[in-house]
Design a protein around this nucleic acid. Structure first.
Lengths: 162, 162
DNA sequence: CGCAAAAAGTTGAAAACTAAACTAACTATC
DNA sequence: GATAGTTAGTTTAGTTTTCAACTTTTTGCG
């Protein structure tokens, strides 16, 4: 079967996305590290924990929320624990379970970093894009996520919105 | 100055993007590795080299093209050279220079992988997004890239055809 | 020319990430 | 209530990425 290549419009869009995403993520990560000594993935963990009840989540929930493997969450949380940002506790209802919980220092870090981070997201994305294009972008990636989430089998069967 | 938080629409768009991008890139990388034993970054290097005159580029040009650090390009190209995908040559006009050049095996790998990769890009992005949203997405990231692109204005907005 | 500064690449060690094997605890079934 | 099968999380080893230091060559300039 012969390949269905991208049209030049599609290719232009795809390449702009590849480039723009790389630059944007790179920039945001660097910015967080320089100013607040946290990486993007760490920042996302702080956010998820801060949004959770009691500022605490089971490791697996956390992993799922930020789309990391269990192994990776173990490593990252261990690092963050060493840095004093989170704390690990035994889960009372499940002997295997471990609960990651934001420390005060972790919460402070998030509170300090968040305004700068939001400003960077604005400066790098929100403010340079037309509002309707940003909405389109949101729709587009919601569709992407809907397609790719839920394990994997061929798409089209999972038309849920995120 | 008090923080200018995102509106809920903006936040929704931003989060969809974070999630969708993570899933998409992960998926594409995994797909390339499983089927063709190349990572996304390696694949991009193959693409850039294949588009260059004589299938060859100076290390720094390559680094710039794929937005990698010099160090990273050195390591990655070394790995790819070990795998037989590229070859390194001394640059005749500049004694410090090194030229990375696609081997036949590297070209073959690209030719074999490209249709699968394009199919994956279609299935994961192009085909699940409304055409006008894809155009918007392209515009959006072109703007992002233009904002963040450092150094010289580079012909980023007029990509060559694959 | 001669020499300081800059540029191109590489190196090596440390950090982060991945994958697979592993331990411990829970659940279902008979 | 034993035990096979899952699930949660960690560990270890191997790979990739980053960072800073380094070598070599080129460039700019007095």
């Amino acid at each position: 079967m012969s390949t269905d290549w991208l049209t030049s419009d599609q290719q232009r869009a795809w390449r702009s996305y590849l480039l723009g995403t790389t630059l944007l993520m790179d920039h945001l990560d660097r910015d967080l590290r320089e100013r607040h000594d946290v990486s993007m993935p760490e920042y996302e963990i702080l956010v998820r924990l801060s949004e959770a009840d009691d500022h605490a989540l089971r490791m697996a929930e956390l992993a799922h929320a930020v789309k990391n493997s269990r192994s990776r969450i173990t490593h990252t949380v261990a690092r963050m624990e060493r840095a004093g940002l989170v704390q690990r506790r035994q889960c009372p209802s499940d002997g295997r379970g471990v609960i990651a919980c934001l420390t005060d220092a972790g919460y402070d870090t998030l509170e300090t970093a968040a305004p700068d981070h939001v400003a960077a997201v604005r400066a790098g994305l929100i403010d340079v894009v037309a509002p309707e294009d940003l909405q389109a972008l949101g729709r587009a990636f919601a569709a992407v996520a809907a397609t790719l989430e839920t394990g994997e089998p061929d798409p089209v069967l999972s038309p849920r919105s995120v």
